[in-house]
Amino acid sequence: MPIPNFLVIGAAKSGTTSLYAYSKQHPEIYMSPLKEPRFFAFEGEKIDFCGPGSNIFNQETITSIEAYRALFDGISDEKAIGEASPAYLCVPKAAECIYHYIPDVKLIVILRQPAERAYSSFLHTVKAGAELNIDFTHALQEEEKRILNNWGFIWRHKTLGFYYPQLKPYFDRFNRNQIRVYLYEDLCNQPVELMQDLFQFLGVDDKFIPDVSSKFNATGIPQNRFLYYLLFTKKSPLKPIKNFLRALFPGKLRTPLAKGIKSKLLVKPTMSPEIKKQLTQEYREDILKVQDLIQKDLSKWLE
């Protein structure tokens, strides 16, 4: 039965959804219809994270190998088969579980300046309506308590930015040539070049040019929370109507319209320079260790 030969393993809020969407366009790549199965992070477990919105995370996580394999029943003649679960980077057991099932897998990582990633993570919870207090400092102060109370990973804004202990098990277990690490800034500045390098890494046609005009899973604070909730959240009471409209109108018409409406509703406030400086200082040692591990210049992250 089919199983992936490549995985996008993180980091969360660093562009994994874009990598998933752009890869999905390639005719020689099959991506799981469920973007984040998280199977290798939670195999055989009962998922019971707490905190606002965690019920969706709990329900959507695949924990059995049978259900996981079923995600890839639609494969035809694609060369590269993959999925994208950022939980694989931050859950300690994931590296060993992946190695057990697919030791020859290719692993893709994309990393973002950790203070900026933390702030984006915070804005994500605000956008989802889960974080009612829109003060970033308050969210950071609450983080340790939330972790102790078993809140989900989306609440670990600061913690998930310490990449070195998350990456090290993969570099210890897998050959370096099985791991490709990208930087978020390269995805923003040179998305086509990055994707073509990724295609080459996967052994598919690297001349293929994906449509990179859309940014996926962008964060921000809704100017009108109620309207945003109705139009764009999974719990919206308008979901039956949206499903009906989805059947009537093709994606090429829906996507630009939805993108335009969403961009009007979302505003993205900038992070306080003082907070960014403080967080970057806390991340400094980790950044230097990551720089040595992945053999990429991360000096700009320290500015």
Rank of each mutant, 00 (worst) to 15 (best):
H157E: 10
D172I: 00
D73Q: 12
R112E: 00
E142A: 08
A41W: 02
G161T: 09
E45Y: 11
V181G: 09
L183P: 05
L257H: 09
F208G: 10
K276Q: 08
P165K: 09
D73V: 00
R112D: 02
L89G: 01
P191K: 13
G51V: 03
Q281Y: 07
G51W: 10
F208S: 11
Q25S: 03
G10R: 04
N58G: 12
V8Q: 09
G161W: 14
A70I: 00
K234N: 14
E303Y: 14
Y22H: 07
R180K: 15
P33V: 15
R156S: 04
K24D: 15
I75K: 15
G129Y: 13
P237V: 02
E193Q: 14
L7K: 03
Q178I: 10
K234T: 10
L265H: 12
G129F: 14
Y163T: 07
W155P: 07
I47F: 15
I3E: 11
A67R: 09
K168P: 11
I75G: 14
L167D: 07
H157F: 10
Y184A: 06
A11H: 06
K127C: 05
G10S: 04
S236K: 06
P256M: 11
S263N: 00
A258T: 09
P269W: 02
F244W: 06
S32Q: 04
Y119Q: 08
D186M: 08
F6Y: 11
L187H: 10
L257I: 00
I29S: 01
Y182C: 05
Y99M: 11
P33F: 15
A94K: 04
R254T: 08
